[in-house]
């Protein structure tokens, strides 16, 4: 089993977390064009890389950003998902 070091809640099993996908810059709802919206929703490079993802710790309900390498599955950094914290 894989464990994750999470600053506020300590060492936790990865199976306690739910994956919610990579963080992407959301366009403004009111002004976005169809082309930009489809780009945001669907068209991505999706290549192996270190990406910032949203994960929720189910037992506590706390959301985290994971910086995870999608080639090796290594989680390189974990920090709470507060507004504007994604790097």
């Amino acid at each position: 089993m894989k464990f994750v070091e999470c600053a506020p809640i300590g060492r936790r099993a990865l199976s306690e977390f739910v994956y919610a996908g990579p963080v992407r810059k959301e366009p403004r709802n009111e002004t976005v064009s169809d082309a930009d919206l489809s780009e945001f929703l669907y068209y991505h490079w999706n290549q192996p890389a270190v990406q910032t993802e949203l994960w929720q710790h189910r037992p506590t309900g706390i959301w985290f950003y994971f910086e995870r390498d999608t080639a090796t599955d290594r989680i390189e950094r974990v920090y709470p998902a507060t507004k504007g914290a994604a790097q």
Binding site: E39, Y43, H44, N46, Q47, P48, T70
Partner: peptide
């Protein structure tokens, strides 16, 4: 597919 598509500069909705 994402790697090969990137060789011609195409983005796709495909996630692995």
């Amino acid at each position: 597919t994402p790697t090969v598509a990137a060789m011609v500069g195409l983005k796709t909705p495909i996630e692995i």
